[in-house]
Amino acid sequence: MVAYSIIGQYVPTNSIIHRLDPRSKTIAVFVLAIVVFMAGNFPALLAMLGGAFVLAAITRIPARFFVRSLKPVLILVGFFFIFHLFFTQEGTELVSLGALTLYSGGVTKGLFVSLRILTLVLFASFLTLTTRTVDLTNGLEKLLSPLKRIKIPTSEFVLMMMIAMRYIPILMEETKRLSMAQAARGADITSGTILSRMKALNPLLLPLIVQSFKQAETMAQAMEARGYRMGAERTQIRLLTWKKADTWTLVFTGMIAAIILITRS
């Protein structure tokens, strides 16, 4: 059973983006995320979204993976669109539905916010989809290493964040397995009213919580058995190497950021 999660899952395809140093990819994604939030018009945002689709093609990750894994994200995107559609009262009046009135500003702002969230999720996903968890952990630890001088436990913070991200696809797979088991016992969580669906989720949530605690305990025991100690200095078997491609990646990212910021007004 394969869990399709766009965040926290590594898909090996040996593309040029996979071979980049995790530090350069982390910096590039961070810069692009800032640019996405600062893009102030539709042309700039659509250009960023188009760039995300180009990067998706370069990664060589199958398109069906993105289609399946983006379904939960599209639900969130749809929620923000509907929220702005009904509660943003700007522009000209389009339709009046009793107590609710739809305005042109609500449609425009809803589309803009939805596209911004979708673009941001795509850029963030490239970091985990193209980087092994171990390499990403080492890269983040290297980038945050200067904070150790002011007694910030960067190693523990990065490890905690990577474990949380890695458990997203694991929990999704466990949820799918439990829902199939409940469906085999006659439970129906796909039809009926919203209230009946929420009640039908009760037999699913408790086993999922129990299983999550068991997995966390198993991981803690495995880490202790391998000699993990908080604050201890650790060596790395996989050394990170900064190449010319990483430098050119940051240069190209900086150029894109400059162009978008200049034309964002």
Rank of each mutant, 00 (worst) to 15 (best):
Q236N: 13
S145Y: 10
A184W: 09
T59V: 03
F37A: 14
R264N: 12
R229F: 14
L195F: 15
M160N: 07
A39W: 00
G254D: 07
I237Q: 11
E174K: 12
S114W: 03
R226K: 06
E217Q: 03
T128A: 06
Q89R: 15
M198S: 11
H18Q: 04
L178I: 14
K151C: 05
P153M: 01
F213L: 13
M180R: 14
A3P: 09
I259W: 15
Q89H: 15
R229T: 12
M161L: 14
A216E: 00
I262V: 13
A99S: 15
T119A: 09
K71Q: 15
A184I: 01
M165N: 09
G110Y: 02
T175C: 13
L45M: 10
S145W: 11
F123G: 08
P22G: 03
F213D: 02
R177G: 11
T92P: 11
L136E: 04
L240R: 13
I16A: 15
F126P: 07
P207M: 03
M219E: 00
S5C: 04
I117G: 05
L143Q: 08
M180F: 08
T241S: 13
A63D: 11
A258G: 06
I170N: 07
V121C: 06
Q221S: 13
G50P: 04
I209P: 14
A44L: 00
A184H: 08
W242D: 07
M165C: 08
P22C: 01
K109M: 10
A56V: 00
A164F: 09
P12F: 08
A220S: 14
F83I: 07
I256Q: 12
M219N: 04
K151I: 00
P22S: 07
I256H: 10
V113F: 12
L140V: 00
A187L: 12
K25P: 06
N138D: 14
L111V: 05
G110P: 11
N202K: 14
S265V: 11
N41Q: 00
A245L: 02
P43N: 01
